[in-house]
């Protein structure tokens, strides 16, 4: 049983790492995310890091593309803010932003970028934290707590990150100059959406069957 549990935990850890890496890759290239990419193996995460590594161009092109997509100063080609997709496409710092920030603060963290709280990197990192907390709970044998973590992750994805990741990805694919950001769009979208679906299935199963958490976590391995 504990072997299975260990496997499950490892799989969850992989989920967590995936979110973390994605968060880092949406940041400006100089922020250190690219180093993370270098250090990650396929086994660590649930996305195709190899593909991403291959798609990385020279530094300058990368920076330029990142800026054009996500930073501006004027028209953002792929605005990385939830508010734009959920509230008003011309507005940042909306109620959606406030709601997300409230979620962070209620959980005991806060945005640490010079950006609105609903920046994609922050939302990805927050999800990472939620999964990392789940992992700790599993490690400690606190399964009820771990279940709650799963619920929390699902709530966050369905209320926030999951709602707009595909539109963001579409903008990225349409406007990216480099293959890297196109690839990132693909990987991010498919991972997040799949993860969301999987969470929904797990929670449904926990709710309607007698299966315990360990059993439900099956199927979380690398796809």
């Amino acid at each position: 049983m504990s072997d299975t549990l260990d496997d499950r935990i490892a799989a969850e850890r992989q989920r967590a790492e995936t979110y973390r890496l994605l968060a880092a890759l949406f940041q400006p290239p100089d922020a250190g995310g690219m180093d993370g990419l270098e250090a990650t193996t396929d086994a660590d995460v649930s996305i195709a890091v190899g593909r991403l590594r291959e798609a990385v161009p020279d530094r300058d092109s990368l920076k330029l593309d990142h800026a054009g997509l996500f930073v501006g100063p004027f028209d953002l080609l792929a605005p990385p803010y939830e508010s734009v997709y959920v509230d008003d496409e011309t507005r940042v710092m909306t109620e959606a932003t406030e709601r997300v920030r409230t979620e962070y603060r209620e959980a005991g963290v806060d945005i640490d970028l010079d950006e609105p709280a609903d920046h994609v990197a922050a939302e990805l990192e927050f999800t990472y934290l939620l999964v990392a907390t789940e992992v700790e709970a599993l490690d400690a044998g606190a399964f009820e707590a771990a279940e709650r973590c799963l619920e929390r992750q699902y709530e966050f994805l369905s209320a926030h990150l999951g709602r707009w990741i595909s539109e963001l990805a579409e903008n990225m694919r349409e406007h990216a100059d480099t293959a890297f950001y196109s690839a990132l769009a693909d990987e991010a979208r498919s991972f997040v959406e799949a993860d969301g679906r999987r969470l929904a299935e797990r929670l449904e199963r926990l709710d309607s069957t007698d299966d315990d958490l360990v059993a439900v976590l099956e199927g979380g391995e690398n796809r």
Partner: peptide
């Protein structure tokens, strides 16, 4: 819980 986990992760966080 989450805050403690976050605190434990320290510098590996980049956005929060």
């Amino acid at each position: 819980a989450v805050g403690a986990v976050a605190a434990g992760l320290g510098s590996s966080l980049t956005s929060l």
